[in-house]
Design a protein around this nucleic acid. Structure first.
Lengths: 153, 153
DNA sequence: CCCATCAGTTGTCCTAAGCAAAGATTGCCC
DNA sequence: GGGCAATCTTTGCTTAGGACAACTGATGGG
């Protein structure tokens, strides 16, 4: 009974999640050419939090610093970020998004927004409210239970 | 106004999706040792659809056959699947999950179910119904819309 | 019987990601 | 002020995922 409802919820959640990942992947493929999903996530961190030291980026993405270094290399090669040292502590390297990088993120977000809009356009106002409330409730509950992790993508 | 609501919905959807991915990753790390997420997805395909020819598995996962071949190699090394030829067409290779593989998937699913249960335990029955409906509505709407897009293009 | 086609595998390339060790810099303590 | 530990980043090494192309074997239609 209740377990049946829970199983349905799990299925629905997995389905919703899969749909979103697919949307993001499509937006990325269409707007970002050769930028991969992890690289895009790095760019989103820089857009939402401003210039960041490499270690903080690694923490945000929950990856090893070495991984962040090399992802930075590739994004730098593509002209989407720059690196700069800091005078008050010359150990640190800050990653800064370029105009080109920012525009890329904006294109992808705009496209994703459009796709989601298209999806929910077919819903009635009541249904739309239900979807929004349901997703918000779930995200909030998950955030509290698991203890507030980081953002980006 | 309405765009604000849509933006909130996008954020909520992204948050919910992130929470789910994190849950799956945790369940995998706890119960599946050295099995990666793509490998786990392959096992799930075999559990839900039974023995499959390699090409069909590749299609299900949306990867190149060569990728499926090598993922199969690794899962075989770990004793989680077996491969068998077929007499009526000796070109095809079928992947079959082993008891060990099946048990692994069951452990992960059980654990994921438990985590989601824990999350929604704090919700009232009304809220739980809202979450389930919202997720289902969204997943269904996404499925229809993307289906149309694919057939249209 | 031959040849086009199909199914999988193998070789090669790139990205992602982790760990460990090395380098460089800083801060602190004596 | 000199040495030393801690901090930040990079580099080397390994495994895995993923794509594409070339190749091998098997099938099946002319």
């Amino acid at each position: 009974m209740l377990s049946t409802r829970r199983a349905e919820l799990v299925d629905a959640a997995v389905g919703a999640s899969r749909a979103l990942v697919a949307i993001t992947a499509r937006s990325l493929a269409r707007d970002a050419g050769d930028v991969t999903l992890p690289q895009y996530r790095l760019l989103v961190v820089l857009v939402t939090r401003g210039p960041q030291r490499l270690g903080d980026v690694a923490d945000s993405l929950d990856v090893n610093p070495s991984t962040a270094t090399r992802m930075g290399d590739r994004l730098h090669r593509k002209g989407l970020i720059t690196r700069r040292g800091r005078d008050d502590d010359r150990r640190v390297v800050e990653l800064v998004i370029t105009d080109e990088g920012r525009q890329l993120v904006e294109r992808v977000m705009e496209h994703r927004r459009a796709e989601i809009t298209e999806i929910v356009d077919d819903l009635s106002p009541d249904e739309l409210a239900t979807v929004a409330q349901g997703l918000q409730l779930f995200a909030a509950a998950a955030g509290e239970t698991t203890g507030e992790l980081e953002s980006a993508s």
